[in-house]
Design a protein around this nucleic acid. Sequence first.
DNA 1: CTAGTTAAGTAGATTACGTCA
DNA 2: CATGACGTAATCTACTTAACT
Length: 184
Amino acid sequence: MEISSDDFSCLELTIAMPGFSSSPSPQSYGERMEEEYETQNPRKKLRLTKEQSRVLEESFRQNHSLNPKQKEGLAEQLKLKPRQVEVWFQNRRARSKLKQTELECEYLKKWFGSLSEQNRRLKKEVEELRGMNVRPPNISQQQPAATLTMCPRCERVATTFLDKGPATTTSTTPTKIIQPSAAC
DNA sequence: CTAGTTAAGTAGATTACGTCA
DNA sequence: CATGACGTAATCTACTTAACT
């Protein structure tokens, strides 16, 4: 997929290439751009066009990293330097990881809330039983307070949420807890 | 002016490959 | 020939910087 000159026009107010050195001819497009920006627009930052971003996103969706051939091809297609494509993928991976971490953090917060609520309920239950002076059932007959079903870190967080969800606070039956394993 | 976003720089680790004794 | 040590280049992650919105 080729991009039009219109798509690329916004680059005229962009590009920062600190540290890029000039190269002998024949120059690539990127090298020519570099030279132009160094002389005309120093200290300007590259802004990718919507079309460039779209193509990069599409490529990232298919694969989160590129082999050298793919990188070269994408760079040529988008009229960017291979290094710029490489940097975009590095940053994109980092953003992806950050988002995933934030999702996991949210999940763990909810899980913690669910456990706290369960703990509160169980403590209350113990108090009530003590008040009735009833012996706790034989340990071998005891229902587990929590049932280990699946490690959330092995599952997709969103799916785990929707399908299994944190425990509700109104349930009187032992709560099904999804407990992360140390192994992963 | 401030905060968020993002392209690019940097440091350090890892891996693959070629060379040489 | 096989092997281990070494140097180098490429690539990655993690963190940071700085331009821009």
